[in-house]
Design a protein around this nucleic acid. Structure first.
Lengths: 198, 198
DNA sequence: CAAGTCAGTGAACGATCGTTTGGTGACTGG
DNA sequence: CCAGTCACCAAACGATCGTTCACTGACTTG
């Protein structure tokens, strides 16, 4: 075992893999939907031949899967960062900050958001990155309860209501592609949070 | 002007037009999404040649537009009927009945619902059949106010919150194609209505 | 330097799509 | 019966798609 595959075990090959994912992400942002997200288009955006994609991804589904995983990573870190930038004892602000980060991501990357939310795997019990995000929100609401904030519904319900409402609002924005109403979205989620608290 | 177009002025031709729309609707229900909603597929479902579609619709966009209009007609009548079947003074029940009808339609016809909501025209000020539906809901909440029901937000906000929340819930159901959670959707909208009332 | 490995490629395959075109057959009014 | 109209269709066109395959050229190893 002197050196199995010394040549490019994880060096240049992985770099191009990431470059493909990056080009795909850029293309998805430009198109605003997965309609034009095609192997040939990604190859064109990355400056390589379509066939070269298959050196790094088994098929188109694998590429999309990789893209979605990458996006979820970005979204959850954005939410966690927004949470961390609040004073630890400002429990309600932390909830709002998380949801604001969620909506900001959705508004900044519509194509990615739609791709992520419309291609969720069907699992029982529900699992996957989206469920983890909801769990983050449930935790945030439970912190509120422990801090003495009165909720009109259990923390779990509050989290689901706020999350589902935010998704509905963002989805409606995306469907009409009307960017004029973007500011009101953040107010909308704040209103949702206010509704579930007393 | 003895008889311009005595032959089939509105008889058989219009019938086939509706038959095409009906086949398209059936196909859309089977596919569950507009991915496979194709001119050739509709023609196959209707038992005619693809070229024949163009005798009744200018192009695919016109066909889809006709389909969407037909669906909105069905949805708003379903909501109005649900409203009419409640006692006139049961104002809150009437709101809930309307939203239940909305969700039932969305659950019964996922492909149609997605087609309708994801292809809204971008107009300023907002208009179209969806806005009319929201207006129905605003009216229903204003009836509640006049009947003495205390709302925690203005009627217009309450309607928007409940509608957006319901859409978010339904959209999440559709995205995961998990039919097991359907019953909980009606409870969810009831909870939303409860949240905006005192 | 010779042999071998492998990322990357050009070209093609088969499928599907929206749409157009030219023709055919059934039915019409005269 | 004749000429005309019109719904309908088979066939084709051009485009785009995902994917495969034989090949090439640069690089590594010995």
């Amino acid at each position: 075992m002197t050196s199995q595959r010394v040549r490019n075990p994880w060096g240049q090959g992985e770099r191009l893999r990431l470059e493909i994912l990056d080009s795909a992400a850029r293309l998805l942002s430009e198109l605003g939907g997965e309609q034009g997200l095609t192997i040939r288009g990604v190859a064109r955006a990355a400056g390589i031949a379509p066939a070269s994609i298959y050196q790094h991804f088994a098929d188109k589904a694998a590429l999309v899967k990789g893209l979605i995983e990458f996006d979820y990573q970005q979204l959850s870190t954005a939410m966690a960062e927004a949470d961390g930038q609040c004073p630890a004892d400002a429990v309600l602000d932390r909830v709002k900050a998380q949801m604001r980060a969620y909506c900001l991501f959705a508004m900044a990357h519509p194509g990615h958001y739609r791709l992520m939310l419309n291609n969720r795997p069907v699992t029982t019990p529900p699992s996957g990155p989206l469920v983890d995000i909801v769990k983050m929100l449930i935790d945030a609401f439970e912190r509120c309860e422990r801090a003495g904030v009165r909720l009109r519904v259990p923390a779990r319900r509050a989290a689901i209501i706020v999350f589902v409402g935010a998704h509905g609002r963002v989805a409606l924005l995306h469907a009409s592609e009307n960017t004029a109403q973007e500011p009101s979205i953040l107010d909308f989620v704040d209103e949702l949070v206010w509704l579930v608290t007393e």
